[in-house]
Write a protein that binds this DNA or RNA. Sequence first.
RNA 1: GGGCGUAUAGCUCAGUUGGCUAGAGCGCAGCUCUGAUAAAGCUGAGGUCCGUGGUUCGAAUCCACGUACGCCCA
Length: 1246
Amino acid sequence: MFQKVADAEFIKGEHDVLKFWTERNIFARLQRQIAGRKPWSFIDGPMTANNPMGVHHAWGRSYKDVFQRYRAMSGYDLRYQNGFDCQGLWVEVEVEKQLGLGAKSQVEAYGIDKFAHECKKRVLKYAAIQTEQSIRLGYWMEWDDPAQLRKLAEAIGTDEVVSFTPPKRPDEVLRDKAEAIVARLGNPDWGGSYFTFSTENNETIWTFLKKCFERGKVYRGYDVMPWSGRGGSAYSQMEVADGRKLTVHRSAFVRFPIVKKVDDRTDQSDPSDSPQSPLTNEYLLIWTTTPWTLTSNVAAAVNPDLDYVKLKAKRDGAIYYFAKDNLDFQRLATEFKDGFGREEWSWPKSVPKLKTLSQIFKENGGFDIEGTLKGAEMVGWEYAGPFDDLAAQSAPGGVPFEARVADKTGVACHRVIDGGRDFKGSANVVAGEGTGIVHIAPGCGDVDHVLGATAGIVGIAPLGEDGCFLEGFGEFTGKSATDPATADLVFAKLKEKGLLLNVEQYPHIYPHCWRTGDELVFRLVDEWFINMDWREEIMGVTDAIRWLPESIQGGEREREWLTNMRDWMISKKRYWGLALPIWVDEDESVPWTDPAKFEVIGSLAELKQRALDGGAGWDEFEGHTPHKPWIDKVKIRSPKTGNLMTRVQDVGNPWLDAGIVPFSTLGFNTHPDLWQKWFPADLVTECFPGQFRNWFYSLLSMATMMGSDKSDPEEKKPFKTLLGHRLVMNEAGKPMHKSDGTAIWFEEAAEQIGVDTMRWMYLQQNPASDLRFGTRHPDQPVTLQTPNGPTDRTIDGVPTNLVTSTPADETRRMVLIPLWNSYAFFVNYARLDEFDPTAPLVPVASRPEIDRWILSNLQALTTGMRAALDDYNTPEACRLAAAFIDDLSNWYIRRNRRRFWRSKDASDTDKLAAYQTLYEVLVTVTKLLAPMMPFLSERMYQNLVRSPETGVRGQESEGKRQIDAAVLAFNPQPLTLNLPESVHLCDYPDADAALLDTDLNARMATAQVVVALGHKLRDMADQRVRQPLAELRVSSSDPAARDAIERLADVVREELNVKQLTVVESLADIVKYTYKANLKTLGPKYGKLLNVLREKLPTVDGKLLAPLRVGESVTITLDGHEITLAPDDVQVGTEQAPGWVSGDDRGIQLALSTSLTPSLLREGMARDFIRQIQQLRKDANLEIENRIRVSYSTTEPEVLTMFTEWCHLIQGETLADSLTSSNAPPEDAKPVNIGDCKVSVWIEKV
RNA sequence: GGGCGUAUAGCUCAGUUGGCUAGAGCGCAGCUCUGAUAAAGCUGAGGUCCGUGGUUCGAAUCCACGUACGCCCA
């Protein structure tokens, strides 16, 4: 027996289903059910286990779940492994905050071992939280028990022996120290989520790095990186982007005295100037926003193609050289007006508008232009640096010493160089903001560094790890680069030397440390790199992958990145992360050019062997994970020098951790058979912004290197298809921020919007565009009703707030509610009629056309859903499903309601057919929707399929909550029909070709067109639908359309409430036809004649064209041209005629009679009356099966006539035992309009 | 500065190989329907298809230039 269905209560229903899945262990049963089938391999991109989930995480996870559920229902085996990203600076930062450690040095004081333990604990804590949140999303993965993860977190760093039951071995209890267990989480024998801090993951990266080393790609190099003095760390570009702020710096125009004008290209002296004696009073004009870098100036760069002016200042007769365009250039003119691109970045009020250079010179006594020259002519000129008195400027080989320039000093390098071009061919030096002459400090800037290396000049790197000047910089030594006092000192010195032209306030967007808020500096650092000169190999692999959605051209984006990227910097001077397996011979007599200077170790086994075989420290390491500080104890001995080699202090880039996952988690080193089975992944799906140069990049390059022994990119590729999606925004399309309280936490959305609804929102969204999800109201706290009871705080203690979402409301209204109502309609009538789903089926062929139609549509839906999901096109799947639900609810059920209302009659096969049809449709739809809407489909399935079978009896009189719970609380009775216990254990439906009838679908579509047009005509004629009309005439030149309407005449008649429907050859007697040229078909045939045709065709005598309406061709003469028109070549329309309204749509012409007889009017009144009674029944909250007595009071004779004529129908329709006239209406009698007459009515329940 | 992309109704977006009456949903107004429906249906108002030029019988669509915005790179 079906359980009565009442209000949907979607969110509470989800809680019930979660409980049901857990209690009945449905997911584990699914795993058993699919084990051993052909694999469908999915690899999860690890999520940083560092914070609770927000709604933005749920988008990708919805895809992941949908495709996995779909494949499981479609006969595949799956791994269901979630991943957590566990290492790297993000975790360190949060742990630092947690421990109140402000700087790098404090971490060391705290103890790196304790710090590493805290990082592990934090990761486990948030892994547990994210696991719980994912479960709430209905995301089916082989989850670790969150309680066990928390227990492990607690025991990290202690010697306590912990018991642990892995997901794949529910009957075993392992006992070990927490660290030992944690190091092995997610291994193929245990199952559960993978953690990138696992020993297997780290060790597989060693495998990768060893391969790189063997191919000679690993090297140590210098680079200038954004650096945080307090953080003691270099920052990647991504991190820098996070911390950009509008900052006002003092920028300076500074002049460098020219010493010698030599043409570098010919190395010949310029004959116009004396080469021997130093020039006096001629200067290069440069400009900088970072005065401290002037201490380390080495060269000045120009653009050889640019025009430069020679300007003479009147005040002192000094000659200045700078780019001609800069003389009158309005610097930051747009920014002054419009700000710097963000609301909070408007021009600072305290900063005056910038002056042009000509203004500056005018204010200083005026100037004359003495000539212009090309930048090329200046290349090679020598000048005196602004701080040549500093010791560092005279250090041979630069600071730090570099052998390649051992014979040079900073001072000796001061000359004008060609600024060159970047890899795209754009000039590095351009006119505009500065002076067209760029001060180059190779130790202080990125471009400078590259340029310095190419130009063969020394570098001077002035700053230590703390961001302060090193020894050798005179008064500057010990001062912080970012301290304004340092800039003061620079300006004072320059003034002293007469080199300072002008200082101004200059606002710009400058990188800041996103942790401490301090300004970053550019600092020369030594780091480890992978030489990426094998990028072509990676591009080959890239091309072997399908990138979705196509519109974002992911493959090309990836290619572009691969083309432009620099060598991969894999090191970071921090504590918590992959231990780079690089051991270095620290003996300074071994030069870095010696290949034996360092070694990369490929595995722990290799390390152990090397350590025991002449090395040291293995004992101290053993029993720990290969992390700092423990791994650093291990030393190996250099086979060449016999020295002990020490591991580099650095940890690894976290993208190594994530990129190795297709190897580490699939057991490349440990379970080759598994790896063979599951590699490559069929699908990878992630939020794409940023990932082309992060995860996708690391996946592709690591897989390419791991597959070095193979030549075919197909064999190397780590995944076959990538599905990317964009970002979640608020409803206004703006980013949501944690800091201002607009970021929506996962549980806030889940418990206010509902997970089925959220999933649908994600799935129907075009993945190429941002999703406008909804809005969090930071000022409106709410209490959430979670599965674990009410709460007003998130897991991190943040108050939970109101979330509103128009798209969610729309989704619910358009999809979930109509589906639920269709289901409720069926169930509630099926209960009354005691419909038995196991009864013998009425053959489909003998069911009415509309039944065959919905079943045929169902097959089309099935085929379409499968195709869409196979193609990873969820928006298409959602569109199809929503369209079907609309057809089901607003056409099939609406059209067929009366078939369900008829009184019980065992021999009523038409009614049985209706039930069986609707039942079949609903059950199939629950399966089709199960992957996308797992909760609602489960509830429907349980009631539709499981309750008749198990015979659960609901308590109708009790609240709906108990009823739902009764459905979902499993019944221990044996399953008589052997139907799967959960919709998610079912097979995904296959279309039954025998039931698909595309002609029928087309016919019904035609009928729907006629009905829509008919409704429009009624509206035009001002005739309500309840008023029956005498006749509808339909005509079309298309025989298929005529046939469709004839066969579905009953549907159309009923829907439009007309007595008679006639399909006629012609409406000529009641309407006037109009004919218009169909440009699409006529254009190619007649070309320029088309305009004549277009204008004249409507004026041609209708009789000549009439045959077109019945599908015959016509030849006419227009402007002397003979023209043959096929039926397709004209569009036939209609115009009004008296007594009829007419219209046309898609080649079908309709005429609706509008003349009313008294008899028709009375029937309309009867329909009005029925409607009013039904409304009274509803207002009185009567059950649909309750019987009533109806009384009325009226003086209108026409109404009385109507009652005698129609009382039988009225009583039947309203379940009225009596229909009585009375002259004493009670007070609550309802005055209503019946046609044009007034009547009072009242009802009472029998 | 360079590359890529986008620009269509108040809002969010469709718009196929070019076809003239440019659509949908939401919102707004009116009407209708309702014995599952929190709905739904119909109608209406609302468009310089970013601008300019070109190709074509015909351009939202193709081409060129420009403008604005977004993303990536620098």
